[in-house]
């Protein structure tokens, strides 16, 4: 049984990423389920996708059972931390998404504060500089691919980055293949460049 929770803010591409992980597992003959946030909550709200690989009846990951948390936004990673197992891994995008409510009250969400908290609480944290990778690849839309790359490289999944790559490319149009391959590889490298915090 492997549980993977993806979280972020509506519009960041969590759904595609969760489908890719589930599909990659299926292609190895495993049973997979996902559950996604679709609808009203997508409009800038918190979104969560559950991916469950193995024998389970229900689609939602129980608290304390996620092997890996892939967070598209550092504040959302903190919010979803109760889902993570004691020895679970967090892959987190560096940049905070400012909430409109914060702009109105003048409070700014501090991404570094969130990441420092994660590092203090979690054994393994992989920080992905999504902005930098998107800049290098030439599109803001490859954030999900970069995070997938980091997750694939973390060794939590029973599948190789190559298997993830194959499924991802199957789902994407030809013209964006190269930029996604680049993002996947740059994501994978985050483990070396940003370092995996291990206590």
């Amino acid at each position: 049984m492997m549980n993977c929770l993806l979280c972020g803010v509506g519009g960041q591409g969590t759904v595609l990423a969760s489908r890719v992980i589930a599909q990659a597992a299926m292609e190895q003959g495993l049973f997979a389920r996902t559950a996604e946030t679709i609808g009203m909550a997508q409009r800038g709200g918190c979104v969560v996708s559950h991916v469950r690989i193995g024998d389970t009846a229900s689609p939602l990951i129980p608290q304390g059972c996620a092997d890996i948390l892939i967070a598209f936004e550092p504040g959302e990673a903190v919010r979803c931390l109760p889902y993570l197992k004691d020895d679970g891994v967090v892959v987190v995008n560096k940049k905070a998404v400012q909430p409109v409510s914060g702009s109105l009250t003048g409070k700014r969400l501090d991404g570094d504060e969130m990441i420092n908290y994660l590092k203090a609480k979690v054994k393994k944290v992989i920080v992905v500089d999504g902005d930098a990778i998107c800049g290098q690849c030439g599109s803001p839309k490859v954030l999900n691919t970069a995070l997938l790359g980091a997750a694939a490289g973390s060794g939590v999944f029973d599948m190789t980055p190559g298997q993830i790559k194959k499924v991802l490319l199957d789902r994407l149009p030809q013209k964006v293949h190269q930029m996604n391959i680049n993002a996947l590889e740059l994501g994978e490298k985050c483990i070396e460049t940003e370092g995996m915090t291990e206590k």
Binding site: G44, G45, L81, P99, S101, M114, Y117
Partner: peptide, 21 residues
């Protein structure tokens, strides 16, 4: 086991109600 609660010492989280794009 009790359901996990948000850590009281966690940094304050943003409220994100759905909004117009």
């Amino acid at each position: 086991p009790e359901a996990a609660k948000q850590d009281e010492n966690a940094p304050e989280l943003a409220v994100r109600p759905p909004i117009l794009c």
